[in-house]
């Protein structure tokens, strides 16, 4: 450190300027004008550009994943495996209408008729124990689900006056059969299932009509 200290005694002071500002600008402008080559710099400039070009050519070909905004893998091998992957087909066996129906009921019906089918006093009629549900072979409930119902209706002695939209456009025949079966077999209801064929038949019979009224249904 002493040596350096002595050095600094000599060196400290002011760093002398060895070139005036305007001459720096002028001399370098001249270099550019005269296109004077600078040997090591020229070599490394060329080397750098070549290396970068080769690298980016390689990288562009290999890792750009086809510019796919949904692709999170970069390696071509992985991408090929990922794209050829097919989920194993699970044979679920015959669908249990009660299970499928419960799911459909939860998303389509429970908001009004409530999860336990108890309805809401004065507003939405109950399904549990309702004669509209349990009577007959189930074609009554299937008709209501397909086309909807509006106007005054009496359920289990209480009268309601509301409106239920038809779900025929949103649900398939199988879905309607499942949800009808579920409603007819839950919360103390115990009536036979509704089949997909039954629903299909009703759908073609009543094709093109609007919502039912209770009186129309009773008349049939």
């Amino acid at each position: 450190m002493d040596e350096h200290f002595e050095d600094s005694q000599k060196q400290a002071g002011v760093d002398e300027g060895q070139a005036s500002d305007s001459s720096i600008v002028r001399a370098h402008a001249q270099i550019r004008r005269e296109k004077v080559a600078g040997s090591p710099v020229a070599f490394f400039t060329a080397l750098g550009l070549i290396v970068v070009l080769v690298f980016s050519w390689f990288y562009f070909r290999r890792y750009m994943a086809d510019y796919d905004p949904n692709m999170y893998l970069h390696d071509r091998g992985d991408i090929a495996l990922y794209k050829s992957y097919e989920p194993p087909v699970v044979d679920a066996g015959p669908v249990d209408p009660m299970v499928a129906g419960a799911k459909l009921y939860a998303t389509n019906c429970a908001a009004c008729h409530q999860p336990e089918g108890q309805g809401m006093a004065g507003m939405f009629p109950p399904l549990a124990g309702s004669e509209w549900v349990t009577e007959g072979d189930g074609s009554l409930i299937a008709k209501i689900v397909i086309s909807g119902i509006s106007g005054p209706i009496t359920v289990m002695g209480e009268s309601y006056n509301g409106m239920m939209p038809g779900l025929g456009a949103a649900l398939s025949d199988a879905d309607i059969a499942h949800v009808a079966t579920y409603i007819r077999g839950s919360w103390g209801n115990d009536t036979p299932e509704v089949t997909e064929e039954q629903v299909a038949a009703i759908r073609s019979e009543t094709a093109g009509r609007g919502v039912w009224t209770a009186a129309e249904l009773r008349a049939q």
Partner: peptide, 24 residues
């Protein structure tokens, strides 16, 4: 998306070209 990061890798590596010139 993977391609965006790959393009970034190219750009980072590419700094070598001007970097070599400046450094030399």
């Amino acid at each position: 998306p993977a391609w965006v990061a790959s393009a970034g890798v190219i750009a980072s590596f590419g700094l070598m070209a001007p970097g070599l010139t400046l450094g030399m």
